[in-house]
Design a protein around this nucleic acid. Structure first.
Length: 119
DNA sequence: CGCCTGACTGAGG
DNA sequence: CCCTCAGCCAGGC
C-alpha cells in the first residue's frame, strides 16, 4: 500500500515499538523511520507528544537517549528527572546520566523490521 | 536570502 | 574522558 504517513507518525510508531526495559537512540529511531540523518528531527517530534499519548497508546519518549547512552536533558532538569525515573521503573540501570547501550540497546528482529517497521 | 538554534552524531585530537 | 568541528535539517526571525 502507499505510504501516506508523515515523518512525525513514522517516528511515533517506531518509538512505540521499543519494548519496555530497552532503550534506543535518536539516530536509530530516525534510521528505522526511514529518515536517516535526521536525529534532531526525532528529538523535536518527541517534544510534541501529547501527555495523553497518541492514538490511544503511550509514546515512550523516555526510552530514547543519545547514541552515547546519555539522557539528553540537563542534569536535574525536570525532563531529566522524569526520564530517569521512568527508566529505573522499567529496570533499566541508569548510572549518573547514562545508560549502558551495550546492555539495554533495542535490537529489532528481522521479522519486525520487515513486517512492522518497513516504511 | 542569511544567521542562529536545537531532546543529534561520528570522527579526530 | 574531554573538547572541537563539520554535517545534519526544520523553524524562527
Amino acid at each position: 500500500m502507499i505510504n501516506e504517513l508523515s515523518s512525525q507518525q513514522k517516528i511515533w510508531l517506531v518509538v512505540q515499538s521499543i519494548p519496555a526495559g530497552k532503550v534506543s537512540s535518536y539516530g536509530q529511531i530516525a534510521d528505522l523511520a526511514g529518515l536517516p540523518g535526521r536525529a534532531r528531527l526525532v528529538g523535536k517530534v518527541l517534544g510534541m507528544v501529547p501527555e495523553s499519548g497518541f492514538n490511544g497508546s503511550e509514546v515512550p519518549w523516555y526510552r530514547v537517549l543519545r547514541a552515547s547512552g546519555q539522557i539528553a536533558f540537563p542534569v536535574a532538569s525536570d525532563h531529566y528527572n522524569r526520564q530517569r525515573a521512568h527508566l529505573l521503573d522499567e529496570g533499566v540501570m541508569v548510572k549518573g546520566r547514562t545508560v549502558s547501550m551495550k546492555k539495554y540497546a533495542w535490537q529489532p528482529s528481522l521479522d519486525e523490521l520487515m513486517f512492522k517497521l518497513s516504511f
